[in-house]
Amino acid sequence: MMGNKLRHPLSKYLLEDRLPHSWCPGCGIGIALGSILRAIDKKVKEGAIDYNKLVLVTGIGCSARAAFYVRFDSAHTIHGRAIPFASGVKLANPSLTVLVFGGDGDIAGIGGNHLIHAARRNMDLLVFMITNFVYAMTGGQVAPTTPTGLYTTTTPKGNPERPLNAIKLVASQNPNYVARASATHPALIEQYTYKALNMEGFRFIEIISMCPEVFGRHIGFNDPVTLYKTLKSKSIVKDKPSLDESDYDWNHGWILGEYVLRRNPGYLTTLRRYEG
C-alpha cells in the first residue's frame, strides 16, 4: 500500500499525519524531542519500557506542542500545570512511564511552585525543560530564564532581572537526577534521557535551545546558524560539574552536564513503605 515510501526512523513514535509541525525553521525543540524519542526507542527495543505505557504530558507554549506530534498517549494541558497533571497520572497508574516536556516559562515560571514540590516529593516523573530564554509562543516577552541585560518585548531597555537557575532550584530539593543539556548537543540529550528513563523519583533535564525567530531576532541573531553557533560556543560540557557552576549569564555561558545523580526511593516506593 505505502509501497516503498520512505518512513521516518521514529515513525513508531511520531504522528506523521500531523506533520509538518508548527515549529519555526532553526528552532531547537524538534531536535530535543527527536533526541528524547531516540533514547526512548532504545529502551523500548531493549524491553525496558512498554511503548503502550508511555505518556507525554505538556503545558502550553511552543515546547508544549510536542504533545501534538507523538503517536503514544499524550496530554496538552494548561499553562504551567503539566507537572501536577502528570503527578495524578503516575499516582493513579504507577505502571505508566510519565514524561513532562515544556518551556522555561511553563515549567519554571507559572509552573514554578509545582516544579519545586514535585522535586521535593521525588515524584516519579521525568521532566524536560526547554530553556530558550524567552516566552516564544506569545511573541518574545521576558522569561524567568532570560539573561540580564537582554532585550525582550516587555523589557525594551534590557532585562533588569537576574535569570532563574533551574538546576540549582530543583537540586535544592534533593531529587534523584538533575542535568543540563542543549539542543546544540543532541547526543547529550539522548544520553541523559536514556540514563534517566528507568530511574525512580524526580528527574529533571534542562535543555538549552535555539529560538531564532522570537529570541534571536530581537538581539541580533535572527539567522538560525549564527544563533546556533553562538549558543554552542556558550555551552561548555563538563563531567560532574558542581552546583555552583550551574549559574549562568549571557557573557560567560552555561555548563552542560549531570549535576545530581542519586538513587533514593521515589515517591511511590516511599508511599508503599508508609502504607505498609
Binding site: A75, T77, P84, F85, N113, H114
Partner: peptide, 18 residues
C-alpha cells in the same frame, strides 16, 4: 498538593489514568 491548582490538575490526570 501544594495548592488547589495542583489538586484539580492532579485529579484530572488521575482520571485519565483510569
Amino acid at each position: 498538593f501544594e495548592d488547589e491548582i495542583a489538586s484539580i490538575n492532579a485529579v484530572i490526570g488521575a482520571s485519565w489514568a483510569g
